[in-house]
Amino acid sequence: MTKLSGRIVTPEGIVSGSLRIDGGRIAAIEPGPVETEQWILPGFVDIHNHGGGGHTFTTGDAAAARQAAAFHLGHGTTTLLASLVSSPFDLMRDATVAYRELFAEGVIAGIHFEGPYLAELRCGAQNPAFLRDPSIAEIAELVKLGEGAVRMMTIAPERTGAVEAIRLLVAEGVVAAIGHTDATYDQTLAGIDAGATVATHLFNGMRPVHHREPGPIIGLLGDQRVACELVADGIHLHDGTLLFAATTGGADRTVLVTDAMSAAGMSDGTYDLGGQAVIVADRVARLARDGSIAGSTLTMDAALRQAVGAGIPIEQAARMAATTPAERIGLGDSTGAIVPGLRADLVILSPELHVTGVRRNGT
C-alpha cells in the first residue's frame, strides 16, 4: 500500500490528510496533519487532443499516437481521447484500425473524430477540402471497425443528414458533440434533442451570439443536457469569457480541454495539422494560409492554472478537468475523481499548481 499526503481535492471538497493506494486503486482518504502544501488532484481527462511533444494523433500513426499520449501523461493527463481532424474516409478508417490496440491497452480512452461533417463557414483550422455531409454508412463502418474505440464525434447539426447521424451515434453508444457550426438556435436544439451532449470548444468555430438569433452558443450553454468544452489557454477565450461560461454552465457542465496539436511542448516553428501548414509563434498556433487559430500548444496542467487564475476555485477547476469529462465519455465509474474504489489516476501539483508527479493506475 502506498500513501500520499497533501491537500486532496475530492468531489466533496478539499481534504488535508493522506491518500492511500492499494492495488492500483484509491483505498482511503484520511484527514489529518500534513507536512506539505502540495495538491493532489484526480488525473486530468482530456477529451479533445490532437497531439503533443512533436507527435500527432491526426495521421493514424500508432507509434506517433503512443508518444503524444506519453507527452501529455507527463503533464498530468491520465486519460485522453485521440482527436482526428477532418480527413478522407480512408484515413479515418485506417486510424480507427490502428488505434484499436492503443485503446485496448488503455494508452488512449478512445477516438474523437472532429469532423469531417462540419460547416464550411465555421471550419476554422479544419481542411475545407474534406468537409462533407454526414454519411450513415461511413459512421456505421467506423463504429464497427473501432470495436468500442470510437468514443466521440463532432458534427454541425445544420448539415443534411446530421440529425440522423447524431441519433445513430447515440444508439451505438458514441458521444455526439456539436461544433464548427453555423447553426441557428433551433437547429442547435434539434441536434441536442437528437442526443448531442457535448459542445466542441464553445465559442470557437461557431456563429457568434446575436440577441435576435442566439445561435449555437446560447443553445448549447443554456441547455442542461450539454457539457461545454472550453480551451483555457488565454488565447481561444478571454479569461472573462472563460469565467462567464464556467459560472453559467457550472462545474458539472464544463469541460476543460487542450485542443492541443503536435506543437504542444515544442519550440516555435512550422507544423502540420490535417495537411495544412501551421505556424507557431509565442505559443500561438495559426494556419499559414489565413491566420486562423489552429488548435493549441496547451497542456491540461496549464489549462487548470489558467482557470484558477481566471477566478474559478480549484475544486471546481479539478472537476472541470477530470470528473465532468470522465462522466461525459462514460468513464465516471472508473476514473476522474478521488473516491475510494476508483482507479488511482492522480496528479500531484506544487502549491503553485505545477506538476511534480503523476500516478496512473497507482503507478
Results as ranks from 00 to 15, higher is better:
residue 1 M to V: 07
residue 2 T to W: 03
residue 6 G to D: 02
residue 17 G to P: 13
residue 22 D to W: 06
residue 25 R to E: 02
residue 30 E to P: 02
residue 32 G to Y: 11
residue 33 P to W: 14
residue 33 P to E: 15
residue 35 E to R: 12
residue 36 T to V: 05
residue 36 T to K: 03
residue 41 L to S: 08
residue 44 F to L: 00
residue 55 H to R: 15
residue 55 H to D: 08
residue 58 T to L: 15
residue 60 G to A: 15
residue 64 A to W: 07
residue 68 A to K: 05
residue 68 A to W: 11
residue 70 A to N: 00
residue 75 H to F: 11
residue 76 G to L: 04
residue 79 T to L: 05
residue 82 A to K: 13
residue 89 F to R: 05
residue 97 V to T: 13
residue 99 Y to I: 02
residue 104 A to I: 02
residue 112 H to I: 14
residue 115 G to Q: 11
residue 115 G to D: 05
residue 116 P to Y: 07
residue 119 A to N: 11
residue 122 R to A: 14
residue 122 R to L: 07
residue 123 C to V: 07
residue 132 R to A: 00
residue 143 V to W: 10
residue 144 K to D: 11
residue 148 G to P: 05
residue 151 R to S: 04
residue 158 E to P: 10
residue 164 E to Y: 12
residue 165 A to S: 07
residue 166 I to F: 05
residue 173 G to A: 00
residue 175 V to W: 11
residue 176 A to E: 11
residue 178 I to C: 09
residue 182 D to E: 09
residue 184 T to P: 04
residue 184 T to C: 04
residue 184 T to L: 02
residue 190 A to W: 00
residue 195 G to Q: 12
residue 198 V to Q: 04
residue 203 F to K: 02
residue 205 G to N: 13
residue 207 R to T: 15
residue 210 H to L: 08
residue 216 P to Y: 01
residue 221 L to E: 14
residue 222 G to R: 02
residue 224 Q to C: 01
residue 225 R to A: 04
residue 230 L to I: 12
residue 232 A to N: 14
residue 235 I to Q: 12
residue 238 H to F: 12
residue 241 T to K: 13
residue 244 F to G: 14
residue 250 G to F: 14
residue 250 G to R: 08
residue 250 G to K: 11
residue 251 A to Y: 00
residue 251 A to H: 02
residue 259 D to Q: 07
residue 262 S to N: 14
residue 264 A to R: 01
residue 267 S to H: 13
residue 283 R to F: 06
residue 287 L to H: 09
residue 304 L to S: 06
residue 318 A to R: 04
residue 318 A to K: 09
residue 319 R to S: 10
residue 320 M to H: 13
residue 323 T to F: 09
residue 325 P to F: 12
residue 327 E to H: 08
residue 329 I to T: 01
residue 334 S to V: 05
residue 339 V to N: 07
residue 343 R to M: 11
residue 348 I to D: 00
residue 349 L to C: 09
residue 353 L to I: 02
residue 354 H to F: 01
residue 358 V to W: 01
residue 360 R to Y: 03
residue 361 N to D: 15
